[in-house]
Write a protein that binds this DNA or RNA. Structure first.
Lengths: 114, 114
DNA sequence: ATAATAATAGTAATCATTACTGATAACGAA
DNA sequence: TTCGTTATCAGTAATGATTACTATTATTAT
């Protein structure tokens, strides 16, 4: 299950992961997928992305990076050079353990098309 | 409805907004609240925050700012000095229209308590 | 005033996610 | 091996935030 997520470079939903797992293990149940995803997320082995499509997207890449989501086609693009943390965080005495930065707009393909 | 959200400085859920509205307009229905929230969000009058608590939080402040969410107490803190956009966005030819940066960790109160 | 249109209350439906249940596997001790 | 304990899972039911629908009421224009 962990490998299934780690080996893909997209940001699949539970449903998509379920489909992938069924190729290897045809009898796996959706409940098991959800349970294992929760375990993996709790242990910090994977990351969850709460987007505006009301489905949780999972990311096997736990290195510090951000995301861009195209509002037209829904594509999710990784940004591996995120900006540094706002100074305000330390100024306010906040201990940061994680960040989820999502930028919204039009991807290159959709910009060209319109 | 718009005023109800604009006049509060927290990040209420639809349910909380429903409660607030009922003080002014006791017969308003939850469906109306959801519909109007959707309209306001579509027009860019308010912002939605998809957090890990599976409820949408609404923000009447549409100025550019980020958020910090305490993983212990769930408090949402505004960050009004967000860092600048990653250079990578323009390098990749992406047109940014919005951003939702959420930082997770322990707030000052919760850090002191533990 | 009347017809056309928009907004709303109230409720039913949706659907991603979670919880539950009964069965099966794994493992260790006697 | 046999019994007891524990963990895992498939399958399904329940949950709950959100959305869709419908009948009714307000609003506006003619």
């Amino acid at each position: 299950m962990k490998d299934v997520i780690k080996n893909r470079c997209d940001h699949p939903t539970a449903d998509m992961i379920y489909e992938s797992c069924r190729l290897l293990e045809p009898n796996i149940s959706l409940g098991t997928v959800y349970r294992n995803l929760k375990l993996l997320a709790d242990e910090g082995d994977i990351i969850t992305l709460e987007t505006s499509d009301k489905k949780i997207h999972y990311d096997g890449d736990i290195s510090r990076h951000s995301h861009f989501i195209c509002e037209k086609c829904g594509k999710i693009i990784d940004l591996f050079k995120p900006s540094k943390l706002p100074d305000e965080l330390t100024e306010l005495g906040l201990t940061v353990k994680g960040e989820k930065c999502i930028y919204y707009g039009d991807c290159t393909d959709c910009t060209i098309k319109n």
